[in-house]
């Protein structure tokens, strides 16, 4: 299976990069933009074909390495390879 993992900062955690992007967007004339948050996107190809097992494996990877759960949330999407 293919896994697409999104890692984002938890609500309430300051995101100075997001703020800088928001500021620059506004300077470029893009009005009405707020709440810009920057995150990470990670793709993985898994030998595992069973969706539930693949999800459990990727969840464990997120908890152990891909995300720092003190400040980050993660979201897992799976699709066939």
């Amino acid at each position: 299976m293919k896994a697409k993992v999104k890692v984002t900062l938890k609500t309430g955690v300051l995101d100075p990069q997001g703020k800088a992007i928001e500021h620059t967007l506004s300077a470029l004339g893009f009005g009405g933009v707020s709440g810009v948050r920057q995150g990470k996107y990670i793709e993985l190809e898994l030998a595992e074909a069973d969706e539930a097992d693949a999800h459990a494996a990727v969840k464990a990877m997120c908890e152990k390495l891909l995300a720092n759960t003190v400040i980050e949330n993660y979201d897992i999407e799976l699709e066939p390879l």
Binding site: V13, L14, P16, Q17, A20, N68, V70, I71
Partner: peptide, 17 residues
């Protein structure tokens, strides 16, 4: 040390970037 769990918390990017 924070990533390994020996110390709590996290070291984020400097506020100034």
């Amino acid at each position: 040390l924070t990533e390994s769990g020996l110390l709590p918390g996290v070291l984020m990017q400097n506020m100034s970037l």
